[in-house]
Design a protein around this nucleic acid. Structure first.
Lengths: 239, 239
DNA sequence: CGAGCTGTTGACATTGCTCAAATTTCGTGG
DNA sequence: CCACGAAATTTGAGCAATGTCAACAGCTCG
């Protein structure tokens, strides 16, 4: 199924101590005393835009943490219809395993850096350092809550509400600085459509409609400015 | 928000040793030596059909295991639109917590029996018996994989495919005996519609269409017979 | 400068929704 | 066991949101 893993660029070693996302990632639960053990078992890999990290159903050998860039998770139907089940950002854990195979495919959106851990090593880490398992459990709890929220969006929100919810989510969780009322959308319209259960045309038309109403500005298809954040919040669920 | 928890019927004590679902539930990871500890902290409660177990946003004090019956998980939009994010069956864990509040509401579908554990006790159990944390992690992995699958269904499948996938899922996971090509649907059409992101009319019409095509028999709205399981499987994702 | 990709816009088709009414099921009491 | 009323389900007719197909525009890269 996947030659993809062989296409990975060659491993490079980075330093866990200076890792930008250490505080957000699973590794935050590794105390100073075990950092050597952690450093010994992780490696780093870079991916080019669009590159496949692994495909759904591939035998799972590694788990990953996102160090930089953004990753899309995809599930496919036999006829090619695609659902993007999530976008991962730095600090997120990557590698949901069901029956020792990946439960979704993962692809780099832009340039991506991953921190890789072989599963056998991860399991040893989990038994050696109880807080890591706790951290992982708490992270999957959060992920599950996010999945429930996404089901509500997919099943019951209108196209407009889907787009607005998506934009607000990005702003809330990935806003650069406190006062910055703007967000980047590194992914394509196809990715957004497949994430929200829409077509690219509907996504595009909805962006245009929101722009014409003055709810957003679109200086560039991948950058959104909110002139009035509260007005956008009103549009999210109030119909 | 919720007077519901006060409406619970009075706790009764059952025996963990004779528990029907012990092998499927979280408790399976509790070894014989710790069963006393387990028995000491669990209680049982019964719920009548339709009764609210807890609501989304309620402060979370208890976690549950389903002992008998079926439970629906619900999320609501301010205007009343509802998404059923899952149906839980005996052995399932209930009580996803985000920020010390329940992430969804839970309601009994038919008569339900729950095994209840106070969260503080559950946490003690988790630290005392490492395999329990492992089991819980593995259960939430499964749940997350199921959630991804449901996103694919909600975002990309047609009404017909949604219904067929739903029926096949029930058959695969809840079929009574090996050869039994029939399933029960204890929940209402409203529940099914809200689970699949459809309206009750569409659900009903789709059932009728499947019946007229001979793919299913409907001796009763809550019982489905599959005269030819393979034909149904073909209809699931092949468009 | 032209090819190709991504995004936008337009015209039309269709799935699934809305509103309304008929029918079946089910609980209750006689 | 049967009758009655309420609730759940099914069916019908028309409609609207969103999808499909097609053309066009803007940008990037060679």
């Amino acid at each position: 199924m996947s030659e993809s893993s062989k296409l990975m660029q060659k491993p490079t070693h980075h330093n866990c101590d200076t890792c930008d996302v250490r505080h957000k990632a699973m590794c935050a639960a590794v105390d100073a005393e075990h950092t050597d053990q952690l450093r010994a078992i992780v490696s780093h890999r870079d991916y080019a835009p669009g590159q496949v990290i692994f495909e759904e159903g591939d035998p799972a050998d590694y788990a990953f943490n996102i160090s930089a860039g953004e990753v899309r998770l995809c599930k496919l139907l036999p006829d090619g219809r695609r659902q993007v089940t999530g976008f991962l950002t730095p600090g997120d854990f990557l590698g949901l395993i069901a029956d020792s195979a990946y439960a979704y495919g993962a692809e780099a959106i832009g340039q991506v850096e991953l921190c890789c851990i072989q599963l056998s090593n991860l399991e040893r880490l989990l038994s050696d350092i109880p807080p890591v398992r706790e951290k992982l459990l708490s992270m999957s709890r959060d992920e599950l809550a996010a999945a429930q929220e996404q089901m509500l969006l997919l099943g019951r929100k209108t196209a407009r509400e889907k787009i607005v919810s998506f934009l607000l989510y990005r702003h809330k969780h990935l806003g650069r600085t406190e006062g910055d009322a703007s967000i980047d959308l590194p992914m394509s319209r196809v990715d957004i459509a497949d994430y929200l259960g829409l077509t690219i045309e509907t996504v595009s038309r909805t962006f245009t409609a929101l722009r014409e109403e003055g709810l957003i500005e679109l200086p560039h298809p991948h950058h959104v400015i909110f002139p009035n954040l509260d007005a956008v919040r009103d549009a999210a669920e109030a119909g």
